[in-house]
Design a protein around this nucleic acid. Structure first.
Lengths: 169, 169
DNA sequence: GGGATCGTCTGTGGAGCACCAACTATTTAT
DNA sequence: ATAAATAGTTGGTGCTCCACAGACGATCCC
């Protein structure tokens, strides 16, 4: 509620009363639960969770070089190669040389890839039902919308150094 | 928008038009991004991301046996031991023998643990700002609330076999 | 007493992934 | 034109996470 408490009196701490609502741990927890279920569901489709992440990112913002992709996925670019090799072997993505910079490989989802991704998402319905069972459809949609925006947007509007000061927190 | 399109005509497929909104991949993606940043931030506090997950779960629903904890975290119970050893070594949790079943170790967050957890969440502010930069405070709170409910609740109210039928999806 | 259960310890193996080094193809700067 | 920087690829190394199995003591239940 109030992140500004204590700013005025310069009182030292009292971090207990309103615990900061950080989503990190919950994100981690739910992602794990989901991933465990996804693995078995995705296996018959020849995919792994991380393939699905890559495909999803590519669908959201395709046509990027694979170095940019490495930045988005925050993976080492050398490992991206293997990942894309898997996907290209099944014709889910295409690597085309960029016309304006022929060093660059422009990665794009193929029609096949979009279809496979859809199938996978479809197959994950029951897994999601288990993990997000406490949320009704409208809430799940809200969740999706928020996650989607957070994932693609990432504008980092202001790097306001609020918490970077010396204060106890 | 319309998830009910095509339900009436029993047309076969067309999975392309409105792709199912599955949060799994996005969850995975964001959790990874967050975890990468968390590691460096949490290190000076002597914690790792998975410790934070455990502490968060314990704060939400403490006083459980560690086998129950293993079920919640969906980890092997043998690995829970090491995780709790780490936390107990720093007096962030306590293992007390259950009075009614003395085989059981009831795990609970100590005051120290709650404090450390708060500090960690506080320290993660900048990390979260980077990852969830596209969301405003209200949206982040909504996200937190949804994740929290999904994480703790898990009642799996109705196992309505909507999608379990033969239909293409 | 006998069998099942909880927690603990140890070890093993596979998977994910970061990092390093070397190489090619291409662009850009001097 | 030559040098330096960049994009991608390949191969290898090593660390961490984690599931799984085996064995053990303590305890509960029948």
């Amino acid at each position: 509620m109030f992140r500004w408490v204590g700013r005025l009196g310069h009182m030292s701490a009292q971090p207990l009363d309103t615990s900061e609502h950080r989503s990190g741990a919950l994100l981690d927890h739910l992602a794990r639960r989901m991933r465990l279920r996804s693995e078995s569901v995705l296996a018959p489709l020849g995919l792994r969770p991380r393939h699905l992440v890559a495909l999803t990112v590519l669908r959201a913002g395709g046509g990027t070089g694979q170095q940019a992709l490495a930045a988005i996925l925050e993976m080492d670019s050398t490992n991206i190669v293997g990942l894309l090799n898997d996907l290209e072997a099944e014709q889910l993505i295409e690597r085309r040389r960029s016309p304006e910079d022929r060093r660059r490989h422009v990665v794009e989802l193929t029609e096949n890839g979009a279809k496979r991704l859809s199938e996978a998402e479809c197959a994950l319905a029951s897994a999601e039902d288990e993990v997000l069972g406490a949320l009704n459809p409208a809430e799940r949609e809200t969740l999706y919308e928020l996650l989607s925006r957070a994932s693609t947007g990432t504008p980092i509007t202001c790097t306001e150094a609020i918490c970077a000061t010396d204060d106890t927190c």
